[in-house]
């Protein structure tokens, strides 16, 4: 059995913290672009118009999602840091309360009151250790839990871009709209299944990752199909306004 390396494990957990941005970005990029392609293919007759619209949608989506992730993580981090600072000030002014709450938390996890008391008493010899333990155990707060806004923004934007290319490339490379759309939807399906299989199945430790893949795929294709039918529905409106 390999020795546990806490530093390496910590880095792994920090990297895994980016899974949300990657999955969200790819899924949204694939879905949005597939939806645009499917919808416009039903509504617009010109292939180049569809490609241009999809490219514009991809660029806008990647920028918007990247900026959104950056701003979201930045705001979350600032709010959480402010809360952490408040907790630290309260802890410093009321150490007895922190000690009692930590003691109660340890008791809830099965330690005897006496054993918990001794642990908290030992921790109290170094207030920094007491407060950081209390922050993590009582409030789930710690410096390590904060995301990196720049990394999150970049990951989200790039993931969206990669996701968008999945249905777009076959559509661009194949001259027939119908065949390009079919190929785009096929690659979309494969990639979405793969994302679900890997992230929700394998990495999440599911016993049957194949189901995670199909679940992911079902949601994605459901959205694309709805987009396509919405395009069919609004096609007469477009035709009327042109006429």
């Amino acid at each position: 059995m390999a020795a546990l390396n806490p530093a390496e494990k910590r880095r792994t957990f920090e990297r895994l913290g980016s899974v949300r941005e990657i999955v969200f970005g790819i899924q949204d990029g694939v879905l949005t672009t597939a939806g645009v392609l499917a919808g416009l293919s039903g509504a617009v007759s010109g292939r180049s118009q569809v490609i241009l619209a999809a490219l514009a949608s991809t660029a806008a989506g990647a920028l918007s999602m990247g900026a959104g992730a950056y701003l979201g993580t930045r705001a979350e981090t600032q709010v959480m840091r402010n809360q952490l600072e408040l907790v630290r000030r309260e802890s410093a002014s009321q150490p007895y309360v922190v000690q009692e709450e930590l003691l109660a938390a340890l008791a809830r996890e099965g330690l005897s009151r006496e054993a918990g008391y001794r642990i908290v008493k030992l921790l109290s010899r170094a207030p920094a250790a007491l407060f950081s333990t209390a922050e993590q155990k009582l409030y789930g707060l710690s410096d390590a839990a904060f995301g990196n806004a720049t990394v999150d923004g970049l990951l989200m934007g790039v993931a969206f871009l990669i996701g968008a290319l999945v249905p777009l490339l076959p559509f661009v490379l194949i001259s027939s709209v119908r065949e390009g759309l079919t190929a785009g939807i096929a690659t979309t399906a494969i990639v979405l299944f793969a994302v679900g299989y890997v992230f929700e199945g394998l990495l999440a430790g599911e016993r049957a990752p194949i189901f995670a893949g199909f679940r992911f795929l079902a949601i994605a294709l459901g959205a694309a199909a709805i987009g396509y039918f919405v395009g069919l529905l609004i096609a007469p409106i477009g035709a009327a306004s042109v006429g």
Partner: peptide, 10 residues
């Protein structure tokens, strides 16, 4: 309230 606490001993 309880033995082995941090306010009661005071």
């Amino acid at each position: 309230p309880r033995d082995f606490s941090f306010i009661c001993p005071t």
